[in-house]
Each structure stands twice: as C-alpha cells, then as structure tokens.
Amino acid sequence: MNSHSLNPSELAGRRDEILSHFVRIDKEFDRRRGENRLLVKREDIQWESASRVHPTQQEGHLLARIISPELGFNIHTFRVFKRQIGGGGIDGAFHTHGDAVKYYLEGKGKEIIDDQEVEVSPGDLAFIPANIWHGTENTGDEPMVFIAFHQIPGTHLPVPASWQYHADDLSEHESIDSRLVTMEKEDPAAMDSATLYSWRQHLLHELGVLDDEFNQRRKAKNYLVPRNEVPWESPADNQTTTLIAPELGFDIHTLQLSVRVVPPGHSDETLHSHGEAVHYYLSGQGHQIVGDESIAVEAGDLVFVPAGTAHSIRNSTGDPMRFLIAEQLPGTYLQRPVISQD
C-alpha cells in the first residue's frame, strides 16, 4: 500500500487497523511479562536463525533473544539479544530502530551509521542512534558476535520538553541551591497544594537548564568506546564508570551503559533502586541481590533488575567481578502499553 496516496481519513483508518492488531500482540506481551523472570544463565542462551523473526536474507545470521517481554521479563525500556554474523564479508541488512548499544564479543567488523563507518573489535562498545539508517558488516573470516541493549520496538524516545522560567523572573527569588538546602528539612506530605506545586516547578526549571546542557553535549554525536578506554580495573571507592550517556557526547535518550568492577570480598552495605536495568557479567562470580532474592551469577549470565526494586551485589571470592550495566536513563518514565479491552 502506498501511504502517500491516502487521504487523511484513509491514513487514520489504516493506522487504526494496524493498531488493532498490534494491541492484540501487546496484550500477550503484557501477559507474559507476568512471569517476572530475572535470570538468564549463559548455558540457557539459545541461537536461532535471524530470518525466523526478521526479514533478513543473508546466510550466516544467527540471533539469540535473551531478555525481552515475550520471554517473560517485565521490562518496558529495552531488550537484550546476541547476534552472530557469518564470516567472509557478510553484511547486515540496513534498517532503523530506537536507541541501541552494542558490546562486541568475537570477530571484527564495522558499523555503518548514516554516512560514518566505525571499525569495531572485541571489547569495544558502539552506540547506534535512534531513527538512523545503519548496518553491520563482518570484515573478517570468522563469525562476528555482539550483544545488544536495544530500545524496545514500538516505544518512543523520551525527548525532554523542558520547563523553564525567564531569568528576570527568578532574579528576586531564592536561589535553587538555597531551596535545595531548605527542601532537605521539609516534608512534602506536610505541604499545602500550592507549595508542593511550586517546589516541583522550581525543580523542573533546574532540570530544564540541565537538559539543555545535556542536549548541547549530545551534539558531539559520539559512536564508539574503544576497549582500551574501558577501565577494567577500578578503585574500591569508585567501582562504577559510565561509558555511554548523554553527558559524554552520545545522542542517547532511553538508556545509559556503565561498567562496574567489584573487588574481591566486597559486599554493598546498602541496597539501592532506580529504573530498569540489566547486568551482564563479564568475569568473576558472586551473588546479585534483587529484592528478596539472592541470585548466584558468573561470567556470561545476565540478571534483570525491575524498576524500583532494591538491589545490591556481593563478591565473596578472591577475584574481581566485572559486569556491564545497561540502565534506563535517570529521569525517564516506563512506557507501559495502554491496551484496549473492547
């Protein structure tokens, strides 16, 4: 069907028709989310032909879906999969989608991102921006394998619509830093509605100023973090290093990626929570605490941490634990489907 030839009524009707079928699929996705899976062991990762789920024609393309709603994970922001591209110069079909970050495990190749070509090899990380045509080419003789943290198809980029007051309107008011000191002593539950709303607006103003700076830094349009720039050794008091995030010049909106190195014998003293996250364990072994569960993990395993769930890590061995953390970008919201019950 040529959508350009449709009149407005036909175009809206066609979209409604497609959405009606999409809703049926999303309803089943949501039912499967109810399995609330958290762990994928390395040995349970299964390969299938990429053509089973994608219209790719190339031979030698394999896909391993790992963490995704249809597999029983209550995740809404991004999914995780592995991809293998056969050797001998085989390339991937050009396509577009949402934000994605790839970590390369085997082989060598290049990412063709719009008009840029980025050489990649094991240990590198590459960012693929949303809505940019791109493809992956295996430039070696051996299979090329990567793991991808990929915005769930069908979701939207959470582009900030910043709220800001004009500077002249704020000149005679208490500074934001002074307000933050005052806020530490205030109980939001004791505020009247006007005060509560006013506090929120002042915080939104400051977030808008920061969002403007984030957007300026996104314009650097960085794509690659080479392996030699990843800190595989870190001090005990600064275990986590952010690798791909807006403030580092990546035009990313849905997730960020970090690496954590947990020293031997370390256990987190407190639990913490944030948006959705997936931990991919690269070396060592230990226990990932997620809510009330203590999950034994080792290299090659993955654990999903649901949004708002308290969690921590424990390394009781004599070797460091290293893992990648793909995490919902702070300040964004879960995009839950609105499913019609008609």
Rank of each mutant, 00 (worst) to 15 (best):
Q201I: 05
H173A: 09
R179W: 03
S193V: 06
Q216T: 03
R218K: 08
M191H: 03
Q201M: 15
G208E: 10
S198D: 13
F214E: 10
D192M: 04
K219H: 07
R217K: 09
D211T: 05
M183F: 07
D212L: 12
S198A: 12
R218H: 04
R179T: 01
S193T: 02
R179L: 14
R218E: 10
F214G: 04
K185V: 11
N215Q: 12
T182N: 14
R200N: 11
T195L: 14
N215M: 13
R218A: 07
D169K: 02
F214S: 09
H173C: 14
Q216D: 14
R179I: 15
E174M: 07
T195V: 15
D192L: 07
D168E: 15
E206F: 07
L203N: 01
E206K: 01
Y197N: 11
W199Y: 06
H202Y: 06
D168Y: 01
N215P: 01
I176K: 04
M183C: 12
M183A: 09
L180V: 01
E174K: 09
R218L: 09
N215W: 02
E213W: 08
K185W: 09
G208S: 05
D192W: 00
S193Q: 12
W199A: 07
S193M: 10
D177G: 05
K185Y: 08
G208Y: 02
D169I: 00
S175M: 05
M191D: 12
S198K: 02
V181G: 11
L196W: 00
P188C: 08
E186G: 08
E184D: 10
L170F: 00
V209W: 07
D212M: 10
D177C: 13
Q216W: 02
I176P: 14
I176Y: 15
D211A: 10
A194D: 12
I176L: 15
V209G: 05
D168M: 09
L180S: 04
D211M: 09
D168C: 09
E172M: 05
A190I: 05
V181K: 13
L196R: 04
I176A: 10
